[in-house]
């Protein structure tokens, strides 16, 4: 079934069909989630209205980890089964993940200023997310560093798998070290420690961001495939001109 979609034309058709199913619910969920987050959820008893930054910050952080994980998995699939779309999907996901990581760092910094009194602290959570950001940048740089694009995507795939070691470190950094960043309060063994009035908009944003990532990923994969084809066609044209 997965082999079937190694055919670019077939994948293209599938992507075109699927994209609205990702894009529309993503748009609706994000708009509705933002409405609940900004206007229709209670302010925090300690943090007041600044808590509303959470509704962007936390889903962006989830996505930063989720996108990296998906990137590492598709890199592994690409290296092991040599599926032609796997490297393409990792390549398409990297800039999206880097943007989510940047949004997470930026909103965290904006949240840190009123709450902690500083834009940045060198605690384990912040540092490991910053490393994640550098890993995304390294992945993209490595991918573009070779004259042979296939060499670049395989090298970058190995890097993505090595860098995956950082993902559990980020997740557990707040438990292993004594950090200024607050510990996990949503995904916990004992159930979430957030009231449902805040949890529901948070999940709406989380699901919305995930679907948005899905739509963007499909779009970027299609674009990359077209760009590759365009390059191939112009190369063929050049060869033809040279032959004549």
């Amino acid at each position: 079934m997965i082999q079937q979609y190694a055919n670019p034309a077939r994948f293209n058709r599938l992507a075109t069909t699927l994209m609205p199913w990702f894009a529309w619910p993503a748009g609706i969920l994000i708009v509705a989630g933002l409405y609940f987050a900004l206007f229709n959820s209670p302010p925090d008893y300690q943090q007041g209205d600044t808590v509303r930054i959470m509704y962007v910050h936390v889903p962006a952080a989830w996505m930063a980890l989720f996108v990296y994980t998906s990137m590492a998995i598709s890199s592994a699939v690409g290296l092991i089964w040599k599926h032609p779309l796997a490297h393409l999907s990792a390549q398409a996901a990297a800039p999206i993940g880097a943007c989510f990581t940047f949004v997470c760092l930026l909103t965290g910094s904006l949240w840190g200023k009123p709450m902690w009194g500083t834009w940045w602290v060198w605690d384990a959570r912040l540092t490991s997310v910053l490393i994640l950001f550098f890993l995304y940048l390294g992945f993209m740089a490595l991918q573009n560093a070779f004259d042979d694009p296939r060499r670049g995507e395989r090298s970058a795939a190995i890097l993505a798998i090595i860098g995956f070691i950082n993902v559990p470190i980020i997740k557990f950094s707040v438990d292993w070290w004594n950090t200024l960043h607050q510990p996990a309060s949503v995904v916990k063994m004992s159930g979430p420690a957030i009231h449902s009035s805040m949890l529901i908009p948070l999940f709406m944003m989380g699901v919305g961001f995930t679907l948005y990532f899905g739509a963007l990923l499909l779009l970027r994969m299609k674009t990359l495939m077209l760009a590759r084809r365009a390059r191939g066609m112009s190369m063929a044209q050049l060869h033809q001109q040279a032959a004549e």
């Binding site: 550098f134 940048l137 390294g138 560093a145 860098g163």
Partner: peptide, 26 residues
Amino acid sequence: TVGAALTLGSRRGGVLLSLLVIPLII
């Protein structure tokens, strides 16, 4: 050694190598 092997034969090898290796050795 991993970084050196990954960037083998790339353009701008040295700077790229640092970009890859430094996050991993923090």
